[in-house]
Computed example of a mutant assay.
Amino acid sequence: MAQRERATAVHRIEFDVDWPPGHVASYLVDCERPTLIDAGMPGDDSERQLREALAAIDYELAEIDQLVLTHPHIDHIGQTNAVIAAADPTVYAPVGVRERFARDSDDLAAVVAGNATRAGLTGDDHERAIEMAVESLERNRDLLPPDAVDVWVEDGGSYDIGGVPVDVLHTPGHQADHCCFTVELDGERALLAGDMAIESFRPVTLHTGLDRGVEGAIGAFYGALDRLAALDPDSVYPGHGPVHTEFERTIERDRRSLDRLLDNTVESLDEPRTAADVVTRRTDDDDPTNLLPETVAVLTHLAARGRIKAELVDGVVRYSR
């Protein structure tokens, strides 16, 4: 392989996904110790896409020296094991993932079952919510084995990654452990944003799903936006949508989106409704479990602030104005 310039550059690597906008992006930081930010989707096709994208910029998978993960969702950790097998990189991940992946599956199932019942799910939908939560935990800790993580990064920490100083900002809401990374790249301040500061849409508030902590998801998201707003990056490298320079506009767009979601939810309560009822009114999706964590988070946030009332009857919470 030809000798490279030591100047840092960033190369975008896209993987196909089955949901809008049809891709998820990782980034190869071309520096003293080549660094991959996020690891795309699992599967043979995604591994092929990763290898082909690296080859197009004169890299091999075995040359990845550092792997940095923004959060433990399937489309960001999918090729972790393939990268480790080929390159044995130093792996960095948010410290909250360590405790999350140590979670007992039976306890998780019990907590989700209780939250799903209070949300008004019944029958197959109730069982599916539990199955989805347990399957997600078990799948994701296989994709990102905790023992494979070398460095658990913490909020406010500064790390030398690949010969480049990197600052960590904890940005929960979309996912409870989510971290963004700021770094100087070729004289510009870059934000490696994962699933925050996406130019084309606000990421859904998944946070902890229907597990413990769902009640604090909206407050966490607002807090993350406040903390991000204190930054002043020149460019944003997100996990979805284009690389962009519209940072301030995007953060304010997300804040307004949350504001509208809260207001619209209040308006939807023309009669007492469960969280599952609110989801049904909000979307045509046949599976109410997809938006249920965000909806529960919104309703509990509104009730805690006195904007709506919550009444527990026969184990189910109904909300009203």
Rank of each mutant, 00 (worst) to 15 (best):
G114V: 07
F101K: 09
R98D: 14
P94W: 02
D75M: 12
V97A: 15
I77G: 04
A109E: 03
I84V: 15
V95F: 07
P89D: 00
H73C: 13
H76I: 07
D106L: 12
V111Q: 08
I84G: 08
G96L: 14
D106I: 04
D125W: 09
R98T: 12
R98M: 15
D106P: 00
D75V: 12
G120S: 04
D125N: 09
V83W: 01
S105Y: 00
T117H: 13
V91P: 05
V83G: 05
L121N: 06
P89M: 00
A86Q: 11
G78Y: 05
A102S: 15
P89L: 00
R103S: 14
A110C: 05
R118M: 12
A82N: 09
R98Y: 11
G114K: 06
G78D: 07
G78Q: 06
L108A: 10
D104G: 04
Y92A: 06
G123A: 02
T80M: 09
P72H: 13
D104C: 08
A87F: 05
A102T: 04
D124C: 02
A102Q: 10
A102M: 07
D125Q: 13
A87E: 07
D104A: 08
L121T: 00
N81M: 12
D106M: 10
D106S: 13
P89S: 05
G78P: 02
I84W: 06
R100D: 13
Y92S: 06
Y92D: 03
D107H: 06
D107E: 15
Q79R: 01
V83H: 03
D88Y: 00
L121D: 02
A113V: 02
V95C: 11
P89F: 00
V97K: 06
D124R: 12
T90N: 00
I84N: 07
H76Y: 13
R100E: 13
N81T: 15
N81A: 14
N115Q: 10
A82E: 08
A82R: 14
N81E: 13
S105C: 05
G123L: 04
H73Y: 12
T90V: 14
P94A: 11
I74P: 00
P89V: 00
